[in-house]
Amino acid sequence: MAVQDRFGVWDWIVFSVLLLVSVAIGFYYAVSGGKQKTTKEFLSGDRNMKVIPIAISILVSFQSAILIIGTPAEMYTVDSMFFINTFGSMLGCILTSILFVPLFYNLKTVSVYEYVELRFKSRAARVISSSISILSTINDPIKPDIFLDHIIISGFPEWASYLIMGSICTIYTFLGGLKAVVWVDAFQGLIMLAGILAIIIQIFVIDLLYCENVSRFFNPDPTIRHTFWSLVVGGTITTTGIYGTTQSSIQRFTALPSLTDAKIELITDKIF
């Protein structure tokens, strides 16, 4: 059976609906509730957001297109041992709920960089840390560019992909604040989940959990590509850092109505 490498009619419909609904959510929150007239509502959703949407939003924020494409490729071309990283991620979320969530939630801060300024009593430290964060994420536009160029339209110009994706994200964020961002993420998360489930159903006969080289499973050698120790320990450290100290995570879990909800959110995120 021939493989279709370009969008068909239904692909365009789903893609268009995804973009239109994202913008519509921004317009909805621009005219509903408090209409984003206060800083508290715009940045933290009045600290009255729900656990499930926040969990999906944080999940989507860190589950990039590169990760979705790269992880199956890694497991297919190398081996399936990479799935052990999931356990490290779970441990990382538990550590984050114990170490970082109470700290940032009780401070009622919406910015990790605000905490840096308070901690070191230095405005310069806040500016430097926020600048480093911006530089570290500046490659994000490459992801939609790869998607548009290689999947939808061959030769799609980079500037056009940046303009389309950047404009849509800016519009719904500007109009609806954190509420719009969270619910757009939740909606996009469901689309991503549907796509992943469709792939799983289509290839269910393949045993992805088969480990071809069990002898190196618990090998302590750090130079080996994947072992139990490198994936669990590495996954724990990586997840703790991402979920516990990044702006994308902190601003979301501090928008929940209670500290208990914030902790539950992290556990729920790993369930998804």
Rank of each mutant, 00 (worst) to 15 (best):
Y76Q: 08
S258R: 11
F42I: 03
A30G: 14
A125Y: 06
H226I: 07
E74Q: 11
L190N: 02
T86N: 09
C169P: 00
I191N: 04
T109G: 00
D221N: 13
Q247C: 00
V184G: 09
V116Q: 01
I56C: 04
D46H: 14
L175F: 14
M165E: 07
M1Q: 09
I54K: 02
N139L: 12
T238G: 05
I134E: 09
S64I: 01
P222Y: 07
F100K: 00
T109I: 13
I191K: 04
Y29Q: 04
L43E: 12
K179V: 03
S249Q: 03
M81I: 15
G189Q: 01
Y28N: 08
V78C: 02
F42M: 09
T268M: 10
G8W: 01
T246W: 10
L95C: 13
R119P: 05
F27I: 04
F174E: 10
G70P: 04
K270S: 07
I267F: 12
V14S: 09
Q202I: 07
W12F: 12
M49V: 04
S89K: 06
C211I: 14
F217W: 14
L190Y: 12
Y115K: 03
S97L: 03
T71S: 11
T260L: 06
I25F: 08
I69Y: 05
C169L: 13
P222A: 10
I271H: 04
G177E: 05
I56Y: 07
L18M: 15
S80Q: 15
M75Y: 02
T71R: 03
P157R: 10
A24E: 02
V184D: 12
S22Q: 01
T260I: 11
L118H: 12
L193H: 02
I25V: 13
D145W: 14
L178H: 13
V23D: 04
N48D: 15
S111G: 11
T260K: 15
V21N: 06
Q36I: 03
V60W: 00
V184F: 09
A194L: 15
Q202P: 01
L178C: 06
C93K: 00
I134D: 09
S61I: 03
V233P: 00
F87R: 11
R126V: 01
F272Q: 00
D221P: 07
I271G: 06
V9K: 11
G33D: 06
T254A: 04
I151V: 15
L118K: 15
I151C: 13
L135H: 06
